[in-house]
Amino acid sequence: MKRYIEDVLSGRDIEDKGLKEKILEIDRRIEDSREIERVLRAFDGRYIEPGPSGLITRGEGGYTTYR
């Protein structure tokens, strides 16, 4: 699994397209973290929009943090 993740994240192709998609999707969600930005936004008294909760590695619902 570690090999697959390394391959996908360094731009190489792997056979299992479904797995590749999943790795990229989880990576996107991790990279999408904007906790610091949102804390600063809250300092300014601005709105923090709500979002779904749950594990970042689970589910289809585009779970993200920082909300």
Binding site: V39, A42, I48, G51, S53, L55, I56, T64, T65, Y66
Partner: peptide
């Protein structure tokens, strides 16, 4: 428990990763 934090301590939650 995040809901408890919101209801009982009037907090705005910013989610962090596990």
């Amino acid at each position: 428990e995040g809901t408890v934090a919101r209801r009982r301590s009037y907090s705005t939650l910013i989610d962090h990763m596990q």
